[in-house]
């Protein structure tokens, strides 16, 4: 587990950009956190780092947005998905074939997601803009990148 602390939305975006530097086609990131934690902000920083220049907006309404950058970024939202059977409509295995996929409120549908993923758990800190980001690599491919992740995130890591 890697624990990072940020003090602003831009800080959260910067952490996301650092993580984006280590992703490969087919990767899945599961974003977990309460309302207003910064899941969309994380995705914004992540997509920007991959060369997406259009605005990354909340996918709550459309459930899935797709952006073209140096790599395709799929941005999903399971906020409104409450039964696992409904998660099938998100067509996650198909999306994973092209680019990198981020799922907001991913904990809602965890059993429907591939076991190999990077969990990013965002919690509110002391001050209004303070956030803690807990990164949990799951599966061999992410675990193999743990060390590189920690090096890239050095500036924000809480020891």
């Amino acid at each position: 587990m890697i624990l990072c602390a940020t003090e602003s939305v831009d800080g959260t975006r910067a952490v996301a950009a650092a993580v984006a530097g280590l992703v490969a086609e087919g990767d899945l990131l599961v974003l977990v956190g309460d309302l207003g934690a910064g899941k969309t902000a994380f995705t914004q920083g992540f997509a920007r780092a991959l060369g997406v220049d259009e605005p990354v907006t909340s996918p709550t309404f459309t459930l899935a947005n797709r952006y073209r950058g140096s790599m395709t970024v799929n941005h999903l939202d399971a906020y409104r998905v409450e039964a696992l059977a409904e998660a099938e409509d998100l067509a996650i295995p198909e999306l994973l074939e092209d680019g990198v996929t981020l799922v907001e409120w991913g904990d809602n549908i965890l059993p429907a997601l591939p076991a190999a993923h990077l969990e990013v758990r965002i919690t509110l800190g002391e001050g209004d803009d303070d956030r803690m980001l807990e990164l949990n690599p799951a599966g061999s491919s992410w675990q193999a990148r743990s060390r590189s992740l920690a090096e890239s995130l050095d500036e924000w890591i809480v020891r």
Partner: peptide
């Protein structure tokens, strides 16, 4: 009942 639009239910 769901607090939002559930896609499967909607379709």
């Amino acid at each position: 009942r769901y607090g939002g639009v559930v896609p499967e239910v909607a379709s």
